Amino acid sequence: MAVEDALTAIDVLAGTVGEVSPQIAEVLVAVTAATSTARRRLGLPVDPGPAPGATALPGPRVGRRTRSGRRGLGPGFQGIR
């Protein structure tokens, strides 16, 4: 359902932005409360939790990135003639 997806996106965004600072988290409590109220009024589950069969996304890779040995056009490149 599109409404449920939109409310979930708002909750996730509010949670992510709220991690920036405690003051922002305090302000975003109102957003979370509003989405919960909207869920109740629409008859949707208030705490949707993870969807059945959903898997957690892997985090970003940590470590060094490897690059190919050759980069750029090299010192002998003369351009288009």
Rank of each mutant, 00 (worst) to 15 (best):
R71V: 02
G74H: 00
P48H: 06
A6V: 13
G43C: 01
R41P: 00
E26M: 10
A34I: 05
V12I: 12
T16W: 14
R41N: 08
S68W: 08
E4P: 01
I10L: 15
R67M: 05
R39Y: 04
A30N: 05
P60W: 06
L73T: 13
R41F: 03
A51K: 11
R65Q: 08
V27Y: 12
P58I: 00
P58V: 06
R64V: 13
V29F: 09
V17D: 07
V46C: 04
A33V: 09
V17R: 07
L73K: 13
A30P: 02
V46Y: 06
G72F: 02
A38R: 03
P50W: 11
R64E: 14
L28I: 00
R71L: 07
S36N: 15
P75V: 00
P50F: 11
D5M: 12
R70I: 08
E4M: 02
L73I: 09
A51Q: 08
L57R: 14
L42C: 10
I24R: 03
D47K: 04
V20M: 08
I10D: 01
G53Y: 11
G69W: 00
D11G: 10
A9P: 07
V20G: 06
I80V: 14
A2Q: 14
E4A: 08
G79P: 02
I10W: 13
L44A: 04
R41Q: 12
E19N: 10
R70H: 09
G59T: 01
P58K: 04
M1S: 09
L28M: 02
V17C: 06
A6P: 07
R65S: 09
G79M: 02
L57T: 09
V12F: 11
A34K: 07
R64S: 12
A56G: 11
A2P: 14
V3N: 11
Q78Y: 06
V20I: 15
P52W: 05
P58D: 04
G79D: 01
E4G: 06
A30Y: 15
T35G: 06
T35I: 00
A34D: 05
S21R: 06
G63K: 03
T32D: 07
R71K: 10
R61Y: 14
L42E: 08
A56K: 14
L44E: 05
A54H: 03
P22N: 04
A51Y: 10
L7S: 04
I10N: 02
R71I: 02
L73D: 10
D5P: 08
L44S: 00
Q23W: 08
V3R: 12
T32A: 11
R39F: 04
T55C: 08
G18W: 02
E4N: 07
A33C: 03
A9Q: 15
Q78P: 01
L28V: 00
A56I: 10
L28R: 00
L57A: 12
P52N: 01
T16F: 13
T8R: 14
G15L: 07
D11L: 10
R61P: 12
R71F: 00
P60I: 03
L42S: 06
R40P: 10
E4H: 06
T32V: 12
R40T: 12
A9E: 15
V20F: 13
R61E: 14
G18C: 06
G69N: 02
L13W: 15
L73W: 10
R71D: 05
T32Y: 12
A14C: 03
G74A: 00
A33I: 09
I24E: 04
E19A: 15
E26W: 08
T66K: 09
